[in-house]
Design a protein around this nucleic acid. Structure first.
Lengths: 206, 206
DNA sequence: GTCTATATTAAGATAGAC
DNA sequence: GTCTATCTTAATATAGAC
């Protein structure tokens, strides 16, 4: 579906197009995005877009595929040999950093899921689900050993996703609600979420 | 923008159109939704839609306006005179029930916010922000009195929004990840979130 | 109030010159 | 590789009959 770039200029233009596509798809979703807009943001003509990608959908699929590669890294890095509370707070911190540094990627993903994930069902069931089950088992093991307090591991992971991605996906709402405090939202969120995780998980409830 | 219904049949048809619009807008966002689709779901012709509403945007705005009326009720109901932990867990429970019972409304709202809230800026700053500030003050008062443990009240509210709405907005992902456990997701979520709130807020950290 | 028919614009995609 | 011009379809919206 996506041609392999062979020359330097091909690679550069494909990246320009993908970056523009990320802009537009993340803001409007697949059906709401238009090639005209992507072409304009990319600074290329519409037919030139379709020289590099066979269709609008190909751009979208390429973006989603590339995103999933890196999007799950923080969860993959959850180390069964590490200290449980430290591992889970580090996971939260990394997810929060991704919301801060890659908000468009978060919104691209959110749009696709909200709209029913029509182009992601297989990757969710084939890759995400096994990974989540594996890490949920690790967490359940820590709980069984009494190293962290018991709570449903799957819903713990969902809550971490929800709370951290919220800072990227619902940015417009945060801006309206926080007013002048908006600029400090990520620092405040890190403190809040670290406290939340500690109280939820630390054996003493500290 | 929205004509007032005068007869019974007018009211009925407008509600049919709004329900169909909720279906389509919540799944595709404003730009991704089409009048053709809304008309088909409503079982009416496209011109008939535009007899009741002057434009596609009028349907969307009507939906968002009506939604905001009821969407914030659970937060409004947070009672300063109540028992703090009970009030906040009740808030979580009501929000979770809304995700379960009105997932389309949640996704309509999420789509609009993710896409930058172009048609909701004023309602967010004029209505949501004062309400959140008011209730955050109530929560801060409880914390100052030592009735619940200290944590940033605004981010506490954001986390409650994120965790509860996640079960409506990211339903497609939950379905893929949970597999056969999917049907029990709301019961499990209620137990998990009640535990989370208790550990986060109860003075003893229970 | 509801429909068919249609005007008008915009969208995805292609042809073919350079 | 990149562009202008264009084909084709689909979208919002309107006209006007019934």
């Amino acid at each position: 579906m996506t041609p392999r770039p062979r020359t330097r200029i091909q690679r550069k233009n494909m990246n320009v197009i993908l970056d523009a596509g990320l802009d537009v798809f993340s803001q409007h979703g697949f059906r709401g995005a238009t090639l005209d807009q992507i072409a304009q943001v990319a600074g290329l003509s519409k037919p030139n877009l379709l020289y590099y990608f066979p269709s609008k959908e190909a751009i979208h699929v390429t973006l989603l595929t590339r995103l999933m590669d890196t999007w799950l890294d923080p969860l993959r890095d959850l180390d069964p040999e590490g200290e449980p509370v430290a591992e889970l707070t580090a996971y939260v911190r990394r997810k929060l950093e991704m919301s801060r540094d890659f908000p468009r990627e978060s919104r691209l993903f959110a749009n696709e899921i909200i709209q029913g994930a029509p182009r992601m069902q297989e990757v969710l069931t084939d890759h995400l689900r096994p990974l989540v089950d594996e890490k949920a088992s690790v967490i359940a093991g820590w709980m069984a050993e009494g190293r962290i307090r018991a709570a449903d591991p799957h819903h713990l992971i969902f809550s971490i996703w929800a709370m951290t991605q919220h800072y990227a996906d619902f940015d417009a709402q945060l801006c309206a609600v926080l007013g002048p405090r908006y600029d400090a939202r990520f620092e405040e969120a890190e403190v809040f979420l670290e406290t939340l995780m500690r109280r939820l998980l630390s054996p003493g409830g500290a």
